[in-house]
Design a protein around this nucleic acid. Structure first.
Lengths: 336, 336
DNA sequence: GAATCAATTGTGAGCGCTAACAATGTATCC
DNA sequence: GGATACATTGTTAGCGCTCACAATTGATTC
């Protein structure tokens, strides 16, 4: 912390103080072998004394690495994406990377390409994409960012790695739970079908029903929001066709519960409801929600694992799948 | 996109193609005056043809500016901080800045200093702090990062700017609403008192009650979570001292509603409940929650405004306050 | 003791850009 | 026409670091 001159200390200053060449200092801070113990200690002492910190820009300039991962995300205020980001950030910082973010307000080809360009301007070493729209992969296929790309929520593609929760499996867990309880008419309040998760959960629902020899004809599509769940709930409360509902996420389920409560439809006595995500609040809905838990932070961490190996080994980055888990609470029971 | 050689085009390549010196190209991309129209056009054409993009590392090295804002945040999975981040990101990217994040898992002096060091390694041009613990300011006062710092949720300090929602005012709005409805015994379920917001809302509650000539003796402290709201709700349902409750945030209010529902306490007939934040879900609680809305994105944007002027003019970065707003729904009514 | 080798340290160049200054061209004035 | 100002362009140096290579040292061998 001795800040004698106006500017920050650089390699040369450390070298001088330690009585070695700048290159030797460089070797020390980069953990190169072939530096004698004594020298290393002297250099480290000098570094400590001056409070030296390596200049990232200079390093990047010559190594052509920025030690930065770009995270391209939409819906960052939502539980899932936010926690995925947290997982990515943790793993990245632990690995010595900086995390730069670009949030998308609207998701379309142009906004995605724009954000990718933003990251390329920063010469990031890799891009993690947390944009759960199906369109994303298409847009990504168009660019050749020249760095590894991992897309969360998909299995990836030709040049794109993927990290996902097994949504089909999650849907299967939910449906099987309902079937086991004796339900035969199981409806689905789906998420938008231009979202990867929306489609996957719907397909999982459909497949699980078919596997059980049941009809998969009760499907309504919402937009993930509590509001849309409420509107749909109003309608369903009138119709009363299903004895159980598998809802695409917990927020829509919240809206649904609200609508049912208003309409006098009891949950779970009249209708059982299963959500998806297991947000921290879901256990305190009225009634507490049976739902499918996803470990988003783990997803984010796995993502970075893929990314790091992608950065090491070249480009192709592989795939990883996280298993979901059913959490049974009070919103489901056997049908009347 | 003509990528003839292996490497990316640089200033020199553009200059050659346009038949000018590299410095002239630099002038064009930096929007300097005193470049003739014809030259500028020729250079721009060359830039387009080569797909040239300026190398950030090289630029940073010489300008000693990274064009990067560091955002230091905790509780990023929560509605407020997440949306504040979104506001910051938007304003930053619009202003041509990159946004680097560091998420804090645990908040203490050491973790904060660690993150600040992380940012200094990256030589960010400014740091936005979204860590709503009172401790934050103290820790920040210790470091001298050498760049402007704006702390969200506080009025800042000596060398630290502040951007906050007027929480006292929000609490006042809530309490006054209850008083206007005829409530005389108004309790408070507070957030942790080592959080800036927790304290501010509690104080606002207390002051508003005193201003109305009422007692401010009914206070319980939670931890922001729905779970703690639930536990407190259980207790309060037994006691039944207050006819109305001002709850520190919507999540605790959710837990409270759940507990009351289980205990047969009707909201609002038996007890009125007001929350704080107005998350998107709050309108779909059972019953829909009266709460205080905060515009977090606006807060984030204001933050960046402060930051940008701080970066321009030197260091001291000022203060900005965002006004909250009461949203009346069905969880409040006149006492029985 | 000279030759060989490995371990350790040093030297020089250059990554791509901008800042400061120098040099040129061009209009304006007397 | 020459002096002056101004607009436009070019030249040079250097930001702080790592890479490739060169040089030095000490240990080992014959």
């Amino acid at each position: 912390m001795t800040n004698t001159s106006g500017r920050l200390p650089r390699l040369e200053d450390v070298a001088e103080l330690a009585g070695v060449s700048h290159q030797t200092v460089s070797r020390v801070i980069n953990d190169h072998p072939n530096v004698s113990k004594g020298t290393r200690e002297r250099v480290e002492a000098a570094i400590a004394e001056l409070g030296y910190r390596r200049n990232t820009a200079a390093r990047s300039l010559v190594t052509r690495r920025s030690q930065t991962i770009g995270v391209l995300a939409s819906e960052l205020a939502q539980y899932g994406p936010a926690n995925t980001l947290l997982g990515v950030e943790q793993a990245a910082r632990d690995a010595g990377y900086f995390v730069s973010i670009a949030a998308l307000r609207t998701v379309n080809r142009e906004s995605i390409l724009d954000a990718v360009r933003h990251f390329l301007d920063q010469s990031v070493d890799g891009i993690v994409v947390i944009v759960p729209h199906s369109e994303t992969l298409l847009a990504l296929a168009e660019v050749n960012p020249g760095v590894p790309v991992v897309a969360v929520g998909s299995l990836g593609g030709a040049s794109v790695g993927g990290a996902m929760v097994d949504q089909r499996r999650g849907a299967e867990l939910a449906v099987r739970h309902l079937v086991d309880q004796g339900h035969r008419r199981i409806g689905h309040v789906a998420g938008p079908q231009d979202w990867i998760d929306g489609v996957a959960r719907s397909e999982g629902w459909s497949e699980a029903l078919q596997a059980a020899g049941l009809e998969d004809d009760l499907l309504v599509v919402g937009d993930w929001s509590a509001g849309s769940g409420y509107d749909i709930g109003k309608k369903l409360a009138d119709e009363r066709t299903a004895t159980a509902l598998f809802v695409g996420n917990d927020q829509m389920a919240l809206g649904l519960l609200r609508a049912f409560n208003e309409a006098g439809v009891r949950v779970p006595e009249d209708v059982s409801v299963v959500g998806f995500d297991d947000q921290p609040e879901s256990g305190y809905f009225t009634p507490p929600l049976t739902t499918v838990r996803q470990d988003f932070e783990e997803l984010g961490r796995r993502c970075m694992d893929l990314m790091l190996s992608g950065i090491e080994n070249g480009e192709s980055v592989g795939t990883t799948v996280v298993e979901p888990e059913l959490v049974v609470r009070q919103s489901t029971s056997a049908p009347a």
